[in-house]
């Protein structure tokens, strides 16, 4: 189960609407390498992890990704909050506006809706952890591209935090993979 905490994992102080940036950042909400995909991937794969350490890792990183999903949704909301029709049109947000208004919808930056086809849960810990390592690298790369497209420090700061978390998750999944390999080779290691 989960307990909802009424605050963000990292502060978001976006003051200036920027629909162009919202349209890009939404991909980390509902895109292939986004936080929703990450969360569902790890929280689904955790059921077939082989021991306490790997179950905890998938459970806890999957939960943290939900906090990141909330941060990304908050960023998109703030970037759209207060934007008038002229700004939406000028920013190329008009096509999103007619579909969702200024609502936050799980889609990528090209408007493709979220699909579970972005993730796998293969029932084998080595297979799943190797997917997870790749997923973290792809998410990190997406954050770097988003940072390259941003100019507002209030947008860049949380993106940098999220990028850094992908680096840490990659590290932890690498350690989890080593734990599974040691388990499989039958060695006592603790």
């Amino acid at each position: 189960m989960w307990l909802y905490e009424k605050k963000l994992q990292f502060p978001i102080n976006i003051k200036k609407p920027d629909p162009r940036m919202a349209k890009l950042i939404i991909t980390q909400y509902g895109g292939a390498d986004g936080e929703l995909a990450a969360s569902l991937r790890y929280l689904s794969q955790r059921f077939t992890m082989p021991n306490g350490e790997t179950r905890a890792t998938l459970n806890d990183i999957g939960s943290e990704e939900l906090a990141h999903l909330e941060m990304i949704g908050t960023m998109c909301h703030r970037l759209l909050d207060g934007a008038d029709c002229e700004l939406l049109r000028k920013s190329g947000y008009d096509t999103d506006y007619v579909e969702h208004g200024v609502g936050v919808y799980p889609q990528n930056s090209a408007g493709v809706p979220f699909t579970a086809a972005y993730i796998q849960s293969k029932g084998d810990p080595i297979t799943d952890l190797i997917e997870d390592l790749a997923a973290e690298q792809k998410a990190k790369q997406t954050y770097e591209y988003l940072i390259n497209m941003a100019d507002d420090p209030d947008v860049i700061e949380p993106l940098r935090f999220l990028r850094e978390r992908e680096v840490v998750h990659f590290q932890r999944f690498g350690e989890a993979l080593e734990i599974v390999k040691r388990l499989n080779s039958g060695k006592k290691y603790f």
Binding site: G52, E53, E175, A176, F190
Partner: peptide, 9 residues
Amino acid sequence: KLYLDTHPD
């Protein structure tokens, strides 16, 4: 927490 998940000892 994440560090301890893979280094519980």
